[in-house]
């Protein structure tokens, strides 16, 4: 379980998070939604101590991650897999080495086993034959999928996906959503998905948290979201709903409402 308690975060004079509290339950899939620039990525980085809050605590499985030693923090981070919004692939390494890197560093697998694992991981994200390419040679969507494969390589307990489907075509998006869903049904996997894409939220999430005005403005289950009478949340969802109804998108439960 991850508990975010009353965190504040500013960059210079820019306040990004104010008194944010959020509980992420074990084995759930939580969607984080909100407008661009509302602080979703910043909040995600707080969850694994990549950013320290100005005030407040982040508790992961009972441990205050900003109060423990760096060594302990590193141990804790091994429970996480994170897909960064920009991919964050190591551009000095080939795709294969990017995926093999966590395995080589943190597991005792032999090189052949690593090769098999990497190929399997790439197949899961529908990429094949790109092992020897450099990240710079990949398209944006391919980078994202390689980064996703790297994030889940060590089968982490907490998986954070920062906009896993942005920049992907609808069909590939569906595959990625299916992959996230199937990973999230494994035992002891908690997924946190940052997304703009309401279609993803409906397809994969148990609950959603809506960030607005430096705060978690609304949090609840997907059913509760349908019924919510919060004007700001409704406006955000309706704006996305319009996109869902657009050509090339699959129908959503909203279309029936």
């Amino acid at each position: 379980m991850i508990e975010v308690r009353n965190i504040d975060k500013s960059f210079g004079s820019l306040e990004v998070l104010k008194q944010v509290s959020l509980t992420i339950r074990d084995e759930e899939t939580l969607a984080i939604i909100g407008r661009s620039g509302s602080g979703k990525s910043v909040l995600m980085k707080h969850l694994m101590g990549l950013i320290t809050p100005d005030r407040g605590e982040v508790i992961v499985d009972g441990v205050d991650i900003n109060a423990v030693s760096y060594g302990e923090l590193r141990q804790l981070r091994r429970k996480f897999g994170m897909l960064f919004q920009g991919g964050a692939l190591f551009d000095s390494m080939s795709v294969f080495d990017n995926l093999a890197f966590p395995l080589r560093t943190f597991s005792d697998l032999a090189e052949e086993e690593i090769r098999a694992r990497v190929e399997e991981n790439l197949k899961e994200v529908q990429l094949e034959g790109v092992e020897d390419k450099n990240p710079a040679e990949l398209s944006g969507g391919m980078k994202k999928r390689v980064a996703l494969a790297r994030a889940i390589a060590l089968t982490p307990q907490y998986i954070i996906y920062d906009e896993p489907t942005s920049g992907l075509d609808p069909e590939t998006s569906n595959t990625i959503n299916d992959l996230i869903s199937s990973l999230s049904t494994r035992s002891n996997v908690t997924s946190i998905v940052v997304t703009h894409d309401m279609h993803s939220v409906l397809a994969i999430a148990d609950r959603a948290a809506f960030i607005h005005d430096c705060d978690i403005h609304w949090v609840g289950t997907i059913e509760e979201m349908h019924a919510a009478d919060d004007p700001t949340l409704n406006a955000f969802v309706r704006a996305s709903e319009y996109q869902i109804g657009a050509p090339g998108r699959t129908a959503s439960p909203y279309d029936a409402n």
């Binding site: 980085k45 694994m48 990549l50 760096y70 590193r74 141990q75 981070r77 091994r78 996480f80 994170m82 960064f84 919004q85 920009g86 964050a88 692939l89 190591f90 551009d91 000095s92 890197f101 966590p102 560093t105 943190f106």
Partner: peptide, 21 residues
């Protein structure tokens, strides 16, 4: 240039996120 690029493209964050120093 190498480390600066790694910083601004979050590659350093990615190393940290994996539990590396």
């Amino acid at each position: 240039a190498e480390l600066g690029t790694m910083r601004v493209t979050e590659q350093i964050d990615a190393l940290e996120a994996m539990g590396l120093n």
